[in-house]
Amino acid sequence: MKRVTGIGGIFFKCQDPAKMKEWYKTHLGFDVTDYGVQFSWKQDDPTVEGYTLWSPFPDKTKYFEPSTRDFMINYRVHDLEALVAALKEEGVTVLDNIESYDYGKFVHILDLEGNKLELWEAK
């Protein structure tokens, strides 16, 4: 079974996300939206485009909890339901239920040091 197929996003805490986005836009040319920046690339099938999201979060965000780290990595996965079932059997802490949105399905887990990871199956 395929598990992780790539990095879907890099999220980090900062004191002022709006100023951080503006700094990256001004100095590094990031095409910033409300969600951050999408770095597009081609998948194994060159007709299918994928992307990796870069996104600053407020330093007081609760979104990364229960992790105490200032970052969270989003990993792209192939079959989220099957992977979550396997992870549960392997004793991995699954923090929530799979949520579906128009851009894919998500769930959160903890690694062995308590880092919160986001797993994403793109639509």
Rank of each mutant, 00 (worst) to 15 (best):
F64Q: 00
F64Y: 04
T68I: 14
F71Q: 00
R76C: 09
F57P: 00
R3D: 06
G104V: 01
R3C: 04
Y51T: 06
I10W: 04
M1I: 07
P17L: 09
D96Q: 14
M72H: 05
G6S: 03
R3A: 12
W120I: 00
S100G: 05
T93I: 10
Y51L: 06
G50D: 15
A85K: 15
V4L: 06
I73E: 05
K62E: 15
D102H: 08
D59F: 12
D44Q: 14
S100Y: 03
H108L: 01
Y51E: 08
P46L: 07
M1S: 13
I98T: 07
L83P: 01
L119R: 02
V37G: 04
F11P: 01
K13N: 03
P58Y: 10
L110D: 09
E81V: 11
K60N: 15
I109H: 01
W41A: 08
L53N: 13
C14Q: 04
V48T: 13
Y75E: 01
D79T: 04
V94R: 03
K13F: 02
M1K: 11
D111F: 06
K25H: 14
A82K: 06
Q43N: 12
D102V: 04
E90R: 15
T61C: 08
N115R: 07
H108R: 14
G9F: 02
L112R: 05
V48D: 10
Y101R: 02
G91S: 09
T61S: 15
E118F: 01
G8H: 08
Y24K: 05
L110S: 10
E113M: 05
E89T: 11
N97M: 06
L53Y: 07
C14D: 05
E113C: 06
L53V: 12
L119N: 01
H27V: 09
L53K: 09
V37R: 10
E89K: 15
D45K: 07
T5R: 04
Y75Q: 00
Y101W: 09
Q38D: 13
L83Y: 04
N74K: 02
A86K: 15
G8N: 03
K60L: 09
F57E: 11
E65R: 13
D34W: 08
I109S: 00
V37N: 05
F57Y: 15
D31Y: 12
D102G: 03
A122D: 13
S55K: 09
T5D: 02
D31H: 12
S67L: 04
G91F: 12
Y51P: 03
Y103W: 13
E22H: 12
S67D: 04
Q15N: 11
Y24Q: 09
G50L: 11
N74M: 11
S55F: 06
D96V: 09
L28R: 03
G36T: 05
R69Q: 14
T26Q: 15
E99N: 02
N115K: 06
A82F: 03
E121P: 00
T61A: 10
S55P: 03
L117W: 08
P17R: 07
V37K: 06
G9D: 02
G36E: 04
E121K: 00
K123M: 06
D45T: 03
W54P: 03
A18F: 05
F57A: 10
M1A: 12
T68Q: 15
K116G: 00
Q38R: 14
T33W: 08
S67A: 10
E49I: 14
E90H: 11
L112H: 09
K13V: 02
K21I: 07
T52I: 07
E49F: 13
M1F: 09
L110G: 11
K116Q: 10
H108Q: 04
